[in-house]
Design a protein around this nucleic acid. Structure first.
Lengths: 320, 320
DNA sequence: ACCATATATAGATAATTATCTATATATGGT
DNA sequence: ACCATATATAGATAATTATCTATATATGGT
């Protein structure tokens, strides 16, 4: 046998024999029979091409070569044990990396989950991508990320989605706006006003438009703005009304009023989405498990809608 | 497959693939076919339980796990290469250890060979044992050493011996002794004198006695002394005559005369002796090879009798 | 001198490996 | 759009390994 065909197992057997100082004891420890261990030793010595033991009057002793081999075996098996540890951590989700792509609006809440998670798993290397619905959808199609967050997941066969948070869309107005004083606001009243809207690829805008369409309505004065932040500031400074995710507003939001429009808030949910046709990194699974268990602690109870574990069990099935 | 059944060979294949960045190139380098290497990689990945490569648009890249494995593989194969180097040196006789047992008298010449040898092979750990014939014979019987030096080797089946140096026994007397003035000395004249003799286990004494017996003679006044050195001093100071190896006398030996006794010098030879029933360490073989090639440079030409290489070829046959 | 214990050897077998040839399947560049 | 190149898969096979049970052979201690 060539030295190259040595296995770690064989070295392990050897190390055990040297440590215990006895073939029989080693066999017991390794759950092998004594002849098996004897044979392994013989094969090892043949492979090395030198005797490893000398039997001088009873007690067998290591030769110099045997001692060298023992050292080498310890180093080598030790180094490989390190690699195994790495694997174990990786497979347990305590180590590794994954990426998650968020639609813009979700960045107002998700950090509350991502923060504690990355504190709990400092060895996981997490990448967070942010874009509007259109952009995240493209990433999804190009399979760039491991987990996606949408309010309306693409419905394809290879997609698994699970809701984790309510995402109500509200109509906001400057606090001093006349409509803000009313008990109830009719849709028609809104459509007179100027509306600050996100770009067409935005999920919030799509949702609102499809809702409007359901009502057989259409807005008249629109003004496009690049971000939720800009819209919020715009509304506060009297530029117009807007539809935004409730999460875009801080808990306290002076200068801005939520209008009690008929049919509002428009209900939607955020989902964690994974692709069945792509291997889910252990760390990504680990994150979803963490989310399933910790959403309650991280996010306000009023928005909770924790169905993450469903996703998780689905995935399991998909993987198996 | 379990991680323990990984072979160094498999890691080597992996390392080659990573290095060349190509399965086909690695196969060429390893003198394997491409499918063989593909299969090995597949098996390796299965063993590890994680993908090692990601194929993103053509170019295949290592995963994190692949990179970890690569590091581990480098460390591990590197460590084992060190062990192989050790083996190579050992098997080449440049490293290792052996012991050689000398009869007392040989210690006057052998250092001239051992010195240069151990300078040339500083990594060989050599043990030199010294005793009288009886003692060395005992060591031989108990198989304590790798090489023995006798003038008259035991003649057993498992013994290989080769002469390497003449060992003439001379009769010495105080320089001012009457016999020292004669052109020729008869044996009878000697036997009148007091003879300084080594102990019964000594080779010199045995040789002399058996020679005497051949002549049908016997000495009358004997005085036993413990060492060749003591005898030399004793003779110089007029205590008597003595038979010693020519090598016991320095080149210049004022105060001592070599008597031209009839039948003297008694010729004998030193032999290197090895046992066929005992593994000859590579270093011991290396020493004998060195002796075969370097005796001429190390010892005086007049005593040379280099038949060491015969021994060596015999040994080869015995081993094969 | 014998007995208990440890080790080695013989003989057997199921499983696995290492390797091949032939062929199918990407994939990148003109 | 096609062709050259690279990779993966299928199918086959000889060799090797890992392991066992049964048994022979040391070896050290009373």
């Amino acid at each position: 046998m060539n030295l190259r065909h040595l296995t770690f197992r064989l070295l392990e057997v050897y190390v055990t024999v040297v440590r215990t100082g006895s073939v029989t004891a080693a066999a017991r420890q390794l759950h092998l029979t004594q002849p098996t261990v004897s044979q392994q030793l013989k094969r090892l010595a043949e492979t090395v091409g030198e005797p490893l033991f000398v039997a001088h009057s009873g007690a067998t002793d290591l030769t110099d070569t045997g001692r060298e081999l023992y050292r080498a075996a310890l180093d080598v098996t030790g180094r490989f044990a390190d690699f195994q540890d790495y694997l174990t951590e990786l497979q347990g989700g305590q180590r590794g990396r994954f990426s998650i792509a968020l639609v813009n609006t979700a960045q107002y809440v998700l950090p509350r989950l991502l923060g504690p998670y990355s504190q709990a798993f400092p060895d996981v290397d997490m990448t967070v991508e942010i874009g509007n619905r259109q952009e995240v959808l493209e990433r999804f199609e190009r399979q760039l990320d491991d987990i996606y967050v949408f309010s309306h997941p693409p419905s394809l066969e290879q997609v698994h989605a699970a809701r984790f948070l309510r995402n109500p869309l509200v109509m906001i107005a400057p606090a001093q706006h006349p409509l803000a004083q009313q008990k109830e606001v009719r849709l028609a009243e809104i459509l007179q006003e100027r509306l600050l809207l996100r770009e067409p690829g935005s999920a919030t805008r799509m949702l609102f438009e499809s809702w409007l369409q359901g009502q057989g309505a259409q807005w008249s004065h629109g003004l496009q703005m690049a971000s939720n932040g800009a819209i919020r500031v715009g509304v506060a400074s009297g530029m117009g009304l807007a539809v935004v995710s409730r999460h875009v507003l801080p808990d306290r939001h002076p200068g801005i009023a939520i209008l009690p429009v008929q049919g509002f808030p428009i209900e939607s949910h955020w989902h964690f989405i994974i692709r069945r046709d792509r291997r889910l990194p252990h760390a990504a699974r680990g994150f979803l498990e963490y989310a399933a268990g910790s959403l309650e602690q991280c996010l306000p109870a009023e928005y909770l809608c924790n169905e993450v574990s469903e996703l998780f069990s689905q995935t399991m099935a998909g993987t198996a």
